[in-house]
Amino acid sequence: MSYQEKRTITTIVTGLLVLAAYCLYAFNPVRLSALTPGDLKPWAVTMLIFIGIGVGASIIIQIVFHILMSISIAIKEKMRNMECDDKEIEKTIGAEMIEDERDKLIELKASKVGFGIAGGGFLLALVSIVLKYSPVVMLNILFLSMSLGSIIEGFVQLTFYRRGVWHA
């Protein structure tokens, strides 16, 4: 499995963990019973906090992942050739983590799917307002569709890495 695939998996896992944490916290019956129906402020605050947690967790996990990958590549390189120096190890790490046109194409194609899902969520949120659901439902549809969009984007990236990707 390549570095890019492993990185995508960590992104998916981070997204899933943050989404699960949001659902457990936001839809907790105890919390829901304490909220005033139609009051959007607690929902907005919760979503803002979880967006912050998501961004922070994503940055920290990516840094930790990068460090662990570098250590693992360095160990493998040392085991393969005991006499290799730091420069050679750095070169191997750089070669493993290089991002080229294929990665960019995969990212682009997957992000189209992610934006599509987020866009679909936006339409669904509008429909929920037309059908006279509470604005809380609309806010949650927006938040969940964006979170799901980013997770599914990761799965689509993995599929492209496995099955191959072609222009057009």
């Binding site: 390549s2 070669a95 493993e96 290089i98 991002e99 080229d100 046109e101 294929r102 990665d103 890495y161």
Partner: peptide, 10 residues
């Protein structure tokens, strides 16, 4: 890959 400026995976 190194000579062509791409990744080994590509």
């Amino acid at each position: 890959a190194e000579k062509a400026g791409a990744s080994r995976q590509t």
